[in-house]
């Protein structure tokens, strides 16, 4: 209900931050070269208006750019042809009847530039040139509409696939207790790659459509756990995440050296991290506290020379 009210409000009052629709975004995003017609039918200024008539008729077009020596010399339309016919000047050259001050758009401009020009000038088509002035295509309002529709369709399709791939998994695969298990091996002392496991887990949850706040808590907790494996273990360890529809269980296990005094380790600021770790901004003795803050439930067990097992639950 609240959302509905807001939507209504947004449409009735002029908001200082107007909502940017997908279509509006695309008008700025798409480039003219992506939607223009590349095969352009051209005429030469030395062609006769009679020749032009045939070109227009055979190709079912209502105008053509006039190209001379590779450059755009002008534009000629069916209206120019009709005027020439009325005046009985069907055999004069295109060069005499064409419009020489041609409005063009650049291929690498956004289509918003073309849309504005169409609206302002009322033309049916605009020649597209590159930055050197060479004719590279033609653009009609139809091209713009077709280009936008094609892009929208493509993005819609992608979204459909994307949506299907992940977020419905718990509805599609039914059991009494469905869980998705992701395992990540974490190497000891490998600080360069530290964070990759947490990053992948974060992305997985996003793909599954979890709430941003829950994703953030999982990301921070698993990152701290991963960092602990990298900093403190002798042989690395493993991060195991079991994702269920309502909650996630993350287990971090390693095979040593183990924590001699768990109570001390849980004190904020207590750290056994070496100097080089501290120089990187870690090892301040806040890791386990951060994990505890993010988790809804946390269990820590450790035995010296055997290993450590940290288990946390976060409600999704």
């Amino acid at each position: 209900m609240v959302i509905n009210q807001q939507e209504e409000k947004a449409t009735t009052t002029a908001s200082p931050h107007p909502e940017v629709t997908k279509l509006r975004e695309l008008v700025y995003e798409l480039k003219i070269e992506q939607v223009m017609t590349q095969q352009v039918i051209t005429v030469s200024p030395d062609d006769s208006m009679r020749h032009l008539k045939e070109v227009l008729r055979l190709n079912r077009i209502s105008g053509a750019p006039v190209v001379h020596d590779g450059g755009l010399a002008g534009i000629i339309s069916i209206e120019d042809l009709i005027r020439a016919l009325e005046a009985g000047k069907i055999d004069v050259k295109v060069g005499e009847k064409m419009t020489t001050e041609v409005q063009t758009v650049f291929a690498d401009e956004s289509i918003i530039q073309a849309v504005n020009k169409f609206a302002r000038l009322g033309f049916g088509r605009l020649p597209v040139v590159d930055r050197q002035g060479k004719l590279v295509g033609m653009l009609t309002q139809g091209d713009v509409v077709r280009g936008l529709l094609r892009q929208l369709e493509m993005e819609y399709h992608e979204e459909e696939i994307h949506h299907y791939r992940a977020s419905h998994i718990f509805e599609d695969i039914v059991s009494d207790q469905t869980g998705l298990i992701l395992r990540y091996k974490v190497k000891a002392q490998d600080f360069v790659r530290c964070g990759e496991a947490a990053s992948k887990l974060k992305r997985a949850l996003e793909r599954l459509g979890a709430k941003p706040t829950a994703v953030r808590r999982v990301a921070i907790a698993s990152y701290e756990a991963e960092t602990n494996l990298v900093i403190h273990t002798t042989k690395g360890g493993e991060l195991i995440a079991e994702i269920q529809p309502q909650k996630i269980r993350i287990v971090s296990v390693d095979s040593g050296p183990g924590i001699p005094d768990i109570e001390k380790a849980l004190q904020p600021g207590y750290s056994t991290a070496p100097e080089w770790i501290r120089e990187m901004g870690f090892g301040a003795g806040m890791g386990l506290n951060n994990i505890q803050t993010c988790a809804d439930e946390m269990h820590l067990n450790s035995k010296v020379n055997v290993g450590t097992r940290l288990e946390i639950f976060i409600n999704l």
């Binding site: 530290c194 990187m280 901004g281």
Partner: peptide, 29 residues
């Protein structure tokens, strides 16, 4: 970085003197 993880919220701009890749990881999380 542990403070960043503990006290920041989504939507924050981070000022730091550290330049190692873990700063980016932290920002991501």
């Amino acid at each position: 970085m542990s403070d960043v993880l503990a006290f920041t919220h989504a939507g924050t701009l981070l000022m730091t003197g550290l330049t190692n890749p873990q700063v980016v990881r932290t920002a991501e999380m």
